[in-house]
Computed example of a mutant assay.
Amino acid sequence: MSNTPLLKVAGLGKSFGGNKAVDGIAFELAAGELLALIGPNGAGKSTTFNMVNGQLRADRGSIQLNGQELVGRKPRDIWHMGVGRTFQIAETFASLTVVENVQMALLSQAGKLFSMWRRAADFQRDEALHLLDQVGMRAQAERPCNVLAYGDVKRVELAIAMANSPKLLLMDEPTAGMAPKERNDLMALTKQLVVDRGMAVLFTEHSMDVVFAYADRMIVLARGRLIAEGKPLEIRDHPKVQEVYFGTGKTFEKPAQAAKKVA
């Protein structure tokens, strides 16, 4: 893992009316690192995510990817700069086959125009199959997405997100709606891709077992402010984090055990 930050966020802020959804947060993310962004509801996680992705424009502050400013750029431009994204609810073309879904993403990356009434059956098919092989979905390449199990749809979405060879991958609640085994399989796959490709991942997640088992570092937001940053076991014992989560029904004891098993 490189010590040079791939992503550098400084003084980032966003307000809606009189409400400061994000209030001057700063953090860095290096290539080869999985950074978890956690916090209770209303902490500012989604707002932060959407500013990095360009869906929201920051009111103040800076977001730099390899020294290039992202604030003010459109999501498509940010995508072409090497930022991929997956969503809490997987987004695929349900009626297209698995391989066609990935080919559509490759078409977009190449800047090609295409018609929904004309299949791009031969366009970068080998590359699409290679991406599917990386996420364990090549054997299901010819199946339509609308017949897949949800965990498999999430794998297809991951292959789609890899179509632009991202330096940075944003994953919004990647394991939402998945069974425990599916959650672990997807995050283990993501961790392997991070190692193999040397990319960075910023992810939000409510499942603390996933966070503590797979994150290299964690940042914690509360009411728009960054209240803690560090390695998972440091965050577990952080007094401010314990205070924020106290009474929410969340506990860090079980996830901490999961982290020890992975290590």
Rank of each mutant, 00 (worst) to 15 (best):
E127Y: 05
E127R: 14
E127M: 07
H130W: 14
L131V: 10
L131T: 02
L132Q: 00
L132N: 01
V135N: 00
M137N: 01
A139P: 04
A141P: 08
E142F: 13
E142W: 10
E142L: 13
E142S: 14
R143A: 14
P144L: 06
P144T: 05
C145I: 07
N146L: 12
N146Y: 15
V147Y: 13
V147E: 14
L148I: 02
L148D: 03
Y150Q: 06
Y150I: 08
G151P: 08
D152S: 12
V153C: 07
V153A: 02
R155Y: 01
V156S: 04
V156P: 04
V156Q: 08
L158N: 07
A159W: 08
A161G: 07
M162K: 05
M162Y: 04
A163V: 07
A163W: 05
A163I: 08
N164M: 11
N164G: 13
N164P: 02
S165C: 11
P166N: 03
K167P: 02
K167F: 10
L168R: 03
L169C: 09
L170A: 07
M171E: 04
E173L: 13
E173N: 11
P174C: 06
P174I: 03
P174K: 01
T175V: 14
T175R: 05
A176Q: 12
A176H: 12
G177N: 09
G177F: 11
G177D: 08
M178A: 09
M178H: 09
M178D: 06
A179P: 02
K181L: 13
K181C: 00
E182P: 09
E182K: 05
E182D: 13
E182C: 10
R183H: 05
R183M: 14
N184H: 15
D185M: 04
L186N: 11
M187F: 03
M187C: 14
M187L: 15
A188G: 13
A188I: 00
T190V: 14
Q192K: 15
Q192H: 13
Q192G: 14
L193H: 10
R197Y: 11
G198A: 12
A200C: 05
A200N: 00
A200Q: 02
V201H: 01
F203R: 04
E205P: 07
E205G: 10
H206W: 12
S207P: 00
V211Q: 01
F212Y: 08
F212T: 02
F212H: 04
A213K: 10
A213R: 11
Y214M: 12
Y214D: 10
A215C: 09
D216Q: 07
R217K: 11
R217E: 02
R217P: 01
M218T: 03
I219Q: 03
I219T: 00
L221W: 02
R223V: 10
G224F: 05
R225C: 09
L226W: 06
I227P: 04
I227D: 07
A228K: 05
G230K: 06
G230M: 13
G230E: 06
K231G: 03
K231E: 15
K231M: 15
